[in-house]
């Protein structure tokens, strides 16, 4: 997993609530057996019409907006557990997703792929949207070490929460398997204590 560095970027605003992973990557694009190339179909049915022509009213087709930060309405990533959603977001070029609320499984999937989900209060989210809609070149700074997200134009900041273990994984580029494998002995010891042969 790549290491997460400090980041300053313009943002892509998507002020829609309850964006589910079927929107992020529709099921018909889940047939690949590798992790690559899902970015082409990120938000496929919002980005392209039935003739595969870009829909001009969708923000990702508007050249005014670009950047490594996606900002979206609450309950982002609900629905299917498909990790392809996190892969698509990363493959497209987003390193950070900011929302006022994330669905559990998506949040875990993002973290496991080095994409940082930042939960901010509803009011702060509104401030980001306001800043971006006032000026598309408005930048967001993300400092993972300090757990801070800053609206560069106004200097307003929010200190976000992240599990300390996950934070260190992101900063150092570790993943969970590395950690669990370092405790293999304990797994085997645990298995010996299990009384139920019918569970295996």
């Amino acid at each position: 997993m790549k290491k997460f560095e400090k980041l300053t970027s313009t943002v892509v605003p998507l002020p829609i609530e309850n964006i589910d992973t079927d929107q992020i990557i529709p099921a018909r694009f889940l047939k690949a057996t590798t992790r690559d190339g899902f970015g082409d179909n990120l938000f496929r049915d919002w980005r392209y019409d039935s003739n595969n022509q870009p829909k001009s009213d969708f923000v990702m087709n508007n050249p005014t907006y670009s950047g490594k930060v996606l900002v979206a309405g609450k309950n982002f990533g609900c629905g299917s557990s498909r990790e392809h959603a996190a892969w698509a977001i990363q493959d497209y070029g987003f390193d950070v997703v900011i929302s006022s609320f994330f669905a559990d499984i998506f949040k875990g999937n993002a973290l496991n792929n080095g994409v940082l989900p930042i939960t901010v209060p509803e009011e702060f989210l509104e401030k980001i949207f306001a800043a971006v809609f006032a000026d598309a070149t408005a930048k967001i700074e993300v400092d993972l070490e300090a757990q801070k997200v800053i609206i560069a134009a106004t200097g307003e900041s929010f200190e976000f929460e992240i599990n300390p273990y996950k934070k260190s994984c992101l900063i150092n580029g570790y993943d969970d398997i590395d950690f669990i494998l370092s405790h293999s002995d304990q797994i085997q010891d645990f298995e010996k204590t299990r009384p139920f042969s019918y569970y295996s």
């Binding site: 398997i177 669990i180 298995e191």
Partner: peptide, 19 residues
């Protein structure tokens, strides 16, 4: 439900790291 990275974790270790 879990993501594919976690599927790999369970394959490799029969464990998951969870809050």
């Amino acid at each position: 439900g879990i993501g594919t990275s976690q599927v790999e974790q369970v394959f490799a270790t029969q464990c998951l790291l969870l809050q």
